[in-house]
Design a binder for these strands. Structure first.
Length: 415
RNA sequence: GUGGGUAUAGCUCAGUCGGUAGAGCGCUGGAUUGUGGUUCCAGAUGUCGAGGGUUCAAAUCCCUCUACCCACCCCA
């Protein structure tokens, strides 16, 4: 048997309905904030991600699906979409268009990791980018919007965390300072942290081992080491979030893994997700466009929601969210009735009803199926009905049946 | 890449001391030739993950492999 490859999966009905609903909510909310959809290719030149995401990140150094094209060029299945969106922004000179560029995307990303709960090799992200402003007011609006998407999906009990990771000026100074501290204290930390002390000092701050916390608490906080510009920016972001009534926690230890993040970073966690408890992550990336070759300064901020994880959480919040139903099940009795019913079904469908037509089988069988398909009504069409013009319409919930004309039928369905 | 767990019907799982395969749900048919849900009756579906070994006999014991799940790392 050929199976879906490791880390990929089929989204079947009725689960696919939740996916559709989540996507519809996201599109609606983003539309109301005046975002427009951008669709970039699933694969790009490998160099785009190497330069955009960062050579030293785990994503680039060990998780990319990279292959050689027949002409020898190196291509990569996108592991994330911000670099692609910025590439498109530069390539098509979107900086020349009026106003901010507010773009969103929904689609699959690819990372070759060991799969586990909430982590797949092909996974879907719902993301958005605002390019063309450094204003902290933009940061606040982006964060407000993403929280709105989660709320409108019916998600409850999620937790927003924000931080500032500084800029090219203040972050390296902070990391140097942190490493200094760590060389003295590393021996008191867990094995992982001792290793991180040299390879990825910031991650030590994010360690979850309880025994390490007392030591970690003594380490310096990046928020105390921001340069003046970054500190002012972060303070303004917080003020704007407060104005908007968005609840958040400032967590100086929040570390994001992608190289391009600077200043504002944020994350939303949810308890239902297992070890991968992050349902979305985002942040500001003011230097990214230039590092990808833009001749104009194009600061930006964006986020991406892990759609698989969001769906998982939404399902948990409302296990019946994926229940499907149809408006009308038509059960024709015999050949003439079937022919009569096909045009009837077509007319009802044209007016928007969700209609299923039984092509064969006995009436009893049709009634059973109507019930299993969760039909609101079943319509029985036989010789009597065709002759009289009165159809037998059964309300499946109440069990009541009445004889109706075509117009009355439409009234029941649409009224 | 490293650990741990699991693998028996479409799904969720039981299967004792090694004795040749079970339940619930679902599916199909019937009780009811034009009426679903509840009920009753009947039925179908298994490479017991794969391969090898021990044995008169293996779902069960041993070895190897594979797949999936969870976790580490890291991230959405």
């Amino acid at each position: 048997m050929i199976r879906a490859v490791k880390g990929t999966r089929d989204i079947l009905p009725p689960d696919s309905h939740i996916w559709n609903r989540v996507e519809a909510v996201a599109r609606n909310v983003m539309h109301s904030y005046n975002y427009s959809e951008v669709r970039t290719p699933i694969f790009e030149e490998t160099a785009l991600f190497a330069r955009g995401v960062g050579e030293e990140t785990d994503i680039v150094s060990k998780e990319m699906y990279t292959f050689d094209d027949k002409d020898g060029s190196s291509l990569t299945l996108r592991p994330e979409n911000t670099a692609s969106v910025i590439r498109a922004y530069i390539e098509h000179r979107l900086d020349q268009r009026p106003g901010l560029q507010k773009l969103y995307y929904i689609g699959p990303m690819f990372r070759r990791e060991r799969p586990q709960k909430g982590r797949y090799r092909q996974f879907s992200q719902i993301g958005a980018e605002v390019i063309g402003s450094e204003s902290p007011a933009v940061d606040a609006e982006v964060i407000e919007m993403v929280v709105e998407i989660l709320s409108r999906c019916g998600l409850q009990g999620f937790h927003l965390i924000v931080n500032s990771v500084g800029c090219k000026e203040c972050r390296p100074k902070f990391i140097a300072r942190l490493k200094e501290d760590l060389t003295a204290k590393a021996s008191q930390l867990c094995g992982d942290c001792q290793r991180r002390s040299t390879t990825n000092a910031l991650r030590v701050l994010d360690c979850k081992i309880p025994q390490d916390q007392p030591v970690i608490d003594t380490l310096p906080s990046i928020l105390d080491h921001l340069c003046e510009t970054c500190a002012k920016h972060f303070s303004a972001v917080r003020t704007f979030l407060d104005d908007r009534g968005v609840a958040y926690e400032v967590r100086p230890r929040l570390v994001r893994g992608l190289d391009y993040y600077m200043r504002t970073t944020f994350e939303v966690v949810h308890g239902s997700l297992g070890a991968q408890n992050s349902v979305l992550g985002g942040g500001r990336y003011d230097g990214l466009a230039e590092s990808l070759g833009s001749r104009v300064h194009s600061p930006g901020i964006g986020f991406s929601i892990g759609e698989d994880r969001l769906v998982m959480s939404v399902e948990e919040a409302d296990p019946h969210a994926n229940k499907d139903s149809i408006d009308l099940y038509i059960a024709p009795m015999g050949e003439a009735a079937l022919r009569h019913s096909t045009t009837l079904a077509r007319d009802l469908r044209r007016r928007g009803a969700r209609v299923e037509l039984a092509f064969e089988g006995k009436l009893k069988r049709a009634m059973e199926l109507a019930n299993k398909l969760n039909a609101r009504y079943t319509l029985i069409v036989g010789d009597n009905e065709i002759a009289s013009g009165l159809y037998a319409l059964k309300n499946m919930a109440s069990g009541e049946q009445e004889n109706v004309t075509r117009d009355q039928l439409a009234e029941r369905l649409y009224g």
